[in-house]
Design a binder for these strands. Structure first.
Length: 376
DNA sequence: TTACCTTTGAAGTTA
DNA sequence: TAACTTCAAAGGTAA
């Protein structure tokens, strides 16, 4: 996907926002490949997803606005009006709530858009194990204001590491005073904390001593080759999550509940198809979140590069992968060859998943087909 | 115990 | 610069 913004731009999110609408062409191209039934297919997809998703307003909004493909490229539309600016942060995300609880986020910061107010942003996903201070490191709108952040959020640079130090709780404005004991009761701010990556007391800490979700103990992920002492001490800072990853985290539990599936591979396929069924506005929420993720990440770890994590994971066996892909292609539902049940096509798991999880197709199809549409 | 699977997107690497 | 590769999350599965 082409980058429309010159590298190094201040606004890390701009490409995302543009990309979100640039996909338009791709969608149309794909649609063209599907033949004349494209419009019907889209409509059906919409209705199918509406059956499987919450019948909430976001989708209704999408319908009100018309199909995303009808939105002029590069335009932002909200409530039937063309906007000159991208829509503001549309959802009240979990970490915003926590900021509010902690006192960084005043209620006035909780932005919402009328049409999306009922969009239930996932309830915070609880981590099984979490450092009680973890929620202290999160996002604030103030944090991303151009130029210098507000005093209480200005990351103090650690002279030893050069890494900005997140504000100490005592430095946070007391909008919502919180007792120390209550801090540990706060649910997860960014559900990026997996139980598997909870840093032990002496590893994986941000130089400030407060673990950040993107920091993972080097013990968890060790290089196969013997790392140097310096590398060994260096905490593993994870990549910031992209828009789709944020969407997956939010929607996974829902899909799991609906499909009674727990296999991530199968769930992810469903989520991938649902992602494409989202309206531009709905996707924009996640692009915006991802943009802020990256922005905060770059503020917290200005010297970090995705390169740092390269080779940290064991690579796939290329031959095996290629073989598998070749095998999967046989009989796969390719975009240019929709199966007879093309209405369900976008929600159907791939053949490789079906081989592994035979129940996926049936369950998903049954849940996806609205009453009275079985004949399709 | 750990890689694999599976998805999309961002960013790095390679040709 | 285009194409390719890796890694983010998740959790069951298989080696």
């Amino acid at each position: 996907m082409p980058q429309l913004e010159p590298a190094g731009g201040d606004d890390l999110g701009a490409p995302d926002e543009l990309i979100a609408f640039q996909d338009e062409g791709e969608e149309q191209d794909k649609g063209a490949g599907r033949g004349s039934a494209h419009g019907d297919l889209d409509e059906l997809k919409s209705s199918l997803v509406s059956e499987t998703e919450n019948r909430g307003q976001p989708l209704a909004l999408a319908r009100t606005l018309g199909k995303s493909s009808q939105i002029p490229q590069g335009r932002w539309v909200s409530q039937g009006k063309t906007l000159l600016q991208p829509p503001v942060m549309l959802i009240q995300c979990p970490w915003q709530r926590i900021w509010g609880t902690l006192g960084v986020f005043s209620p006035s910061h909780e932005l919402s858009l009328t049409a999306l107010q009922s969009n239930k942003v996932p309830v915070v996903q609880h981590a099984h194990h979490m450092h009680p201070l973890t929620p202290l490191i999160t996002y604030s709108n103030d944090h991303f204001s151009p130029g210098s952040p507000p005093g209480h959020l200005s990351p103090e640079i650690d002279p030893k590491t050069g890494i900005p130090r997140p504000p100490h709780p005592s430095e946070l404005p007391p909008y919502y005073p919180l007792s120390p004991g209550a801090v540990g009761q706060i649910p997860l701010m960014s559900s990026r904390f997996s139980p598997h990556v909870v840093p032990p007391p002496t590893h994986g800490l941000h130089p400030s001593g407060i673990p950040h979700p993107t920091i993972v103990s080097p013990i968890v992920k060790q290089e196969p080759t013997q790392p140097s002492k310096e590398e060994e001490k260096k905490p593993h800072i994870k990549k910031p999550l992209n828009a789709f990853m944020l969407y997956m985290k939010e929607m996974r539990a829902k899909v799991v509940a609906e499909c009674t599936l727990k296999e991530s591979a199968a769930i992810n396929q469903i989520l991938g198809r649902r992602w494409h069924s989202l309206s531009r506005e709905e996707q924009a929420k996640y692009y915006e979140l991802a943009r802020k993720e990256r922005q905060l990440h770059s503020q917290l770890y200005p010297t970090w590069s995705a390169r740092d994590n390269y080779g940290k994971k064991k690579k796939r066996k290329r031959e095996k992968l290629a073989q598998q892909q070749s095998h999967d292609t046989e009989g796969e539902y390719l975009p240019c060859q929709p199966p007879p049940c093309s209405g369900l096509w976008s929600l159907m798991p791939s053949s490789s998943v079906l081989r592994r999880f035979p129940g996926v197709q049936e369950q998903e199809a049954l849940r996806a087909v609205p009453a009275g549409r079985e004949a399709l």
